[in-house]
Write a protein that binds this DNA or RNA. Structure first.
Length: 277
DNA sequence: CTCCTGTCCTGCCGGC
DNA sequence: TGCCGGCAGGACAGGA
C-alpha cells in the first residue's frame, strides 16, 4: 500500500535520523522477504557511512560511502522504524532486519506480509539493474508532461487504469492514487488508453502532481499497515473521494449515484459511473 | 511486442 | 464462539 507519498514520507523521516552515520552492525532474522536478502549482507554494509537517502518510484535508496546502495521496497505492509539512541529497542514479531548505527540509533524493518524486498546494488549499476531500468519518469520531473503522457498512451490498448499503474510509464502511482486521479479528471478507469485525448492528458498531468503533493503534505495515507518512521499516522485517507468507498454517495457531483467497485486485472477500481466516462 | 494472469504472504473481516 | 474463505495488492515471470 505504500505508494509514492508514503515512501516519500518514510525517506523524509529517515534522512535526518541516519545521514552521516556509520553502520556498526546489521542483523537479519530470516533469510528472505519476497526475494532473498543480499549475499554477505552484513559484511558488505558494516563499517560504511550513510551519505544520503533518496527515493525513486516506490523504492527507498540508502546511499553508502563504499559504492553500495541499500534498496528497501516496502511492498504492501512494510514499516521502517527508527529507534532513537535514548529509546530501547524491543524486537517485535515480523521485525526481519535491524541496523545499528554508531550514535546508538537503530533502524528496524517490519513487514508482516513479506511483500517487501531489500537489495544491495553497486552505485554505478543501478540504472542497469532489472528493478530500475524500466522505471519511467518521476511525476514531479519536467520529463513528465502532457505530451509525454499522450505519446505513451496513444498506442496502448489496455485500460487507462492499468497504464497509470505501469511503473514504466510513470513512477510511483499505485491503486489508491490512480483511482483518485481518475475521479478528479472524470475519466473512467475502464477507458482504453489509446482513447484518452490530448486535452485529458493536459488534465491528468496536473491532477497527478496535485494529488501526490497534497498526500505528501497530509503525511501520506494510513490504511491497515502503513505508519511513519516515528509510528505516527498519515491523514490523506480522509480526503479520498472514491478509494474504498463502494456504495457510498459520489461526493463531488449531484448525480446521486453510488461509487461502484469493479475488478481490473485482479485489482479493485472505485469510481462513479455517472461522473467518470 | 503487448497485454494479462499467476505468484508470493499474513492479517483482517464477514458469513455460517 | 470459532472456523474458513475471500480479499488486500506491488512487481516480476511467464504465457497467450
Amino acid at each position: 500500500m505504500p505508494e509514492l507519498p508514503e515512501v516519500e514520507i518514510v525517506c523524509q523521516g529517515l534522512t535526518p535520523a541516519i545521514t552521516g552515520k556509520t553502520i556498526i552492525s546489521l542483523k537479519q532474522n530470516r533469510p528472505d522477504l519476497r526475494v532473498p536478502f543480499p549475499d554477505d549482507f552484513a559484511k558488505k554494509v558494516q563499517g560504511s557511512k550513510i551519505t544520503a537517502v533518496k527515493r525513486r518510484a516506490k523504492y527507498i535508496q540508502i546511499i553508502l560511502d563504499n559504492q553500495w546502495i541499500m534498496i528497501i521496497h516496502l511492498g504492501m505492509s512494510g514499516v521502517v522504524k527508527i529507534i532513537k539512541p535514548c529509546d530501547i529497542y524491543e524486537k517485535k514479531k515480523h521485525d526481519h532486519l535491524s541496523i545499528d548505527l554508531d550514535d546508538g540509533t537503530i533502524i528496524a524493518l517490519n513487514d508482516p506480509r513479506r511483500f517487501g524486498m531489500v537489495l544491495l546494488i553497486k552505485e554505478n549499476e543501478i540504472n542497469k539493474h532489472k528493478n530500475f531500468k524500466h522505471i519511467g519518469p518521476e511525476p514531479f520531473s519536467n520529463e513528465f508532461n502532457d505530451k509525454y503522457l499522450y505519446d505513451q498512451l496513444k498506442n496502448k490498448t489496455g485500460s487507462i487504469k492499468n497504464s497509470l499503474l505501469d511503473q514504466s510509464i510513470i513512477a510511483g502511482l499505485g491503486n489508491i492514487y490512480v483511482c483518485e486521479v481518475l475521479y478528479q479528471t472524470s475519466i473512467s478507469p475502464l477507458r482504453k488508453s489509446n482513447k484518452i485525448t490530448k486535452k485529458e492528458c493536459e488534465n491528468l498531468v496536473p491532477a497527478i502532481i496535485d494529488t501526490l503533493k497534497k498526500a505528501i503534505q497530509a503525511g501520506g495515507s494510513t490504511l491497515k499497515d502503513y505508519k511513519h518512521t516515528d509510528g505516527k499516522l498519515g491523514y490523506f485517507q480522509h480526503q479520498f473521494c472514491v478509494y474504498g468507498k463502494e456504495k457510498e454517495k459520489c461526493p463531488d457531483c449531484t448525480c446521486n449515484e453510488y461509487i461502484i467497485r469493479v475488478n481490473q486485472s485482479g485489482r479493485s477500481s472505485f469510481y462513479c459511473a455517472k461522473k467518470q466516462k
